[in-house]
Simulated assay, not measured.
Amino acid sequence: MKFVIAPDSFKGGMTAKEAADAIQLGLQRVFPAAEFEKVPMADGGEGTVQSLVDATNGQLIRKHVTGPLATTVQATYGILGDQETAVIEMAAASGLQFVNDQTHNPLITTTYGTGELMLDAMSRGIKRIILGIGGSATNDGGAGMAQALGIKLLDEDHHELPFGGGQLHRLNQIDTTTITPFIATTKIIIASDVTNPLTGPDGASAVFGPQKGATPAMVKTLDANLKHYADIINRDLHLDLANRPGAGAAGGLGAGLLAFTNAEMQRGIDIVVDYSHLKQRAQNADFVFTGEGGIDYQTKFGKTPYGVARATKSVAPTAPVIVLAGNVGEGIDSLYDKRSIDAIFPIVPGVVTLEAAIKNGPKNLALLAENVGRLINSIQIK
């Protein structure tokens, strides 16, 4: 019997690999001779680096870079087992975890550190970079990232722009002649499910700016600045990005990547399915186990369990897909269909505190997997 185990992380409690190990532990108590194919997963957000490194036997790289407030921070990215692909979470260098209620200010925060991580990966011979762009503290349109890659963003006096989206109204010229030559030979794959444009009522500043500390006045300023930025990109690079779906992701980093690098956008879960070789590893599966910390009606829109279910059903259509989740929310009935999820179980055995649930997560996950395995075994015996 073959089990495919492909969970996401259980946020705050287990990495995807630790969750996969716990599920295997439980199932092995019932099926000690079974074949287990463990594929740690993610959906392009937090945990994607660790999941893909674990799934491909890659390695983690740690580097000091420029944080969103222009202070030095330590960030981590991954190189996959093929030694040609890097995976970077922009939040590792430019994320909300580096600011607080007193320091967050999207007028000054920068994506420069994200560009530094990209440049470091390229200098190691990397040919593809998977870049997850969730959780940003920035609203600079990817200007800082571009500057780190060697692009000059100049004002009317031919001076380099300071960091931050609050300075973009001063942009007068984009000089790409000094960009790193690595850009020409590196493919950037943007992992994002965000479809917001760069500007306007659905744009980066209006929709995401407030959660990064932007006041209504700041939102107005930042949106106007990004519009000016888009106009200069259109004039100098002949790229119309203002209304491009996804350009507003991560405070406009999506636009910067599309403007200055050889980039394309893909759904995060689709990227992880591809680079983890999930479909190939799910061939001839008898059962598929997946899961994450929480599941509800939103899981259908790009989250790991639903993506795993659709991917594995495409190659093993008769294999039931079983989801084990830390918390089961509203609307899960919409997740059930013949091409996706077959059953959903919560791992928490009773009423407990969040602290206890996290602490006992691996034990509870293994116990639930064992009990589901016993049910499978009893049905087969009959």
Rank of each mutant, 00 (worst) to 15 (best):
Q28R: 09
G302Y: 04
N196K: 04
M118D: 14
T111N: 08
Q280E: 15
M14K: 00
T261L: 14
F163T: 05
E46Y: 03
G254E: 11
A319H: 03
V323S: 01
T103E: 12
F301G: 08
A259P: 07
H169S: 15
F260D: 12
G166M: 06
G47F: 02
I108Y: 08
V53P: 05
L52H: 02
Q211G: 10
R128N: 14
V99T: 12
P201K: 10
I133H: 04
P349F: 01
G134A: 12
V73W: 07
K2T: 11
N100C: 10
V53T: 08
A191P: 05
A230W: 02
L335D: 06
Q59E: 15
G307E: 11
S51V: 02
G252P: 04
F260G: 09
N284F: 09
K300N: 10
S9P: 04
F260M: 09
E156C: 13
V219T: 09
A91N: 09
Q28F: 05
L171D: 13
E160Y: 03
A121K: 04
G144K: 01
P210Y: 03
A357E: 04
T312A: 14
K338Y: 14
N371Y: 08
K17H: 06
F289A: 06
K338N: 15
A250K: 01
P197D: 12
G150R: 04
L52Q: 13
R310I: 12
T185C: 13
V87S: 11
I126P: 09
L52D: 11
H158Y: 12
E160G: 10
V207Q: 09
E156I: 11
D202V: 04
T353Y: 00
L96M: 15
M122C: 14
H158G: 10
Q280H: 15
A16E: 09
G373V: 05
G293C: 06
I79D: 14
I129F: 06
I332R: 01
Y297R: 08
S192Q: 07
D296S: 05
F31G: 10
A86P: 07
G373E: 13
L171W: 05
